[in-house]
């Protein structure tokens, strides 16, 4: 009951926090998608560059998010600012997106690419008409993981001055107010779940039935 009471009496704050959370996510997601999808496409034929970048991304993943925020905060251009938070989130999404784009594009059956080339498709047509549609399931899976992760990591941005849903959880812990923690946790998880459901919907909408069905066949075997 106390959760509901808390929710009702602090509705204005909670709405602000939610919007701040969504705003941070939106900017980070747009930047991540743009950056890592295009980078993944650019490096698809450059295995050395790809390996270096993927190693760098894995290293970032290994840095605890709190300390990454901390480090970014000390850099003058970032500081206690939404820029630090966005930058950290974008870095964390690198591995799941970039790696999946690179592996998926390179995982397309070479015979299919050869027949596309042999029929007179240009390299650009091969990319857009053949490679990307076939790589899409793996790319979407990567994006899905990245987005759900970003929703969670965004809560920790409260330590560098963001006032989002992480605030409820952090304050709840400091003041031992369980209802605050629970309210924050429920809202953050709802965003996660919604993002996941949305991605599932997009997957169904954009994937060719031919690719989906052949994937299902693979799973049955």
């Amino acid at each position: 009951m106390s959760v509901i009471n808390y929710f009702i009496s602090n509705i204005d704050n909670i709405i602000d926090y939610t919007f701040a959370h969504l705003y941070l996510l939106l900017i980070s997601i747009i930047l991540s998608l743009f950056l890592w999808l295009s980078l993944g496409i650019i490096i698809r034929n450059k295995s050395k560059t790809a390996k270096t970048l993927i190693a760098f991304g894995s290293f970032i993943m290994a840095v605890p998010s709190i300390s990454l925020y901390g480090i970014l905060m000390t850099i003058p251009a970032f500081g206690l600012n939404i820029r630090s938070a966005v930058f950290a989130l974008v870095l964390y999404s690198m591995i799941p997106i970039l790696r999946n784009v690179y592996t998926a594009l390179n995982g397309v059956n070479p015979a299919i690419i050869e027949s596309a080339r042999g029929m007179g498709m240009t390299e650009r047509q091969i990319l857009w008409k053949v490679q990307l549609p076939l790589a899409l399931p793996v790319i979407i899976a990567g994006v899905r993981v990245a987005l759900v992760m970003m929703v969670g990591i965004a809560t920790l941005a409260v330590f560098i001055g963001e006032r989002n849903l992480g605030q409820l959880i952090y304050q709840g812990i400091v003041r031992t107010r369980t209802e605050m923690i629970i309210t924050g946790a429920i809202l953050v998880s709802s965003i996660s779940v919604s993002v996941d459901i949305l991605m599932g919907f997009l997957e169904k909408k954009f994937l060719s039935p031919g690719v989906l069905k052949s994937l299902n066949l693979g799973r049955d075997q």
Partner: peptide, 23 residues
């Protein structure tokens, strides 16, 4: 031009290479 040349030459390979995402 390579791509224009190839459009005038039919090409069939052992692995067939049909596009799985197309009917």
């Amino acid at each position: 031009k390579k791509s224009e040349l190839r459009r005038k030459i039919g090409y069939v390979i052992q692995e067939i290479g049909l596009f799985p995402h197309m009917t």
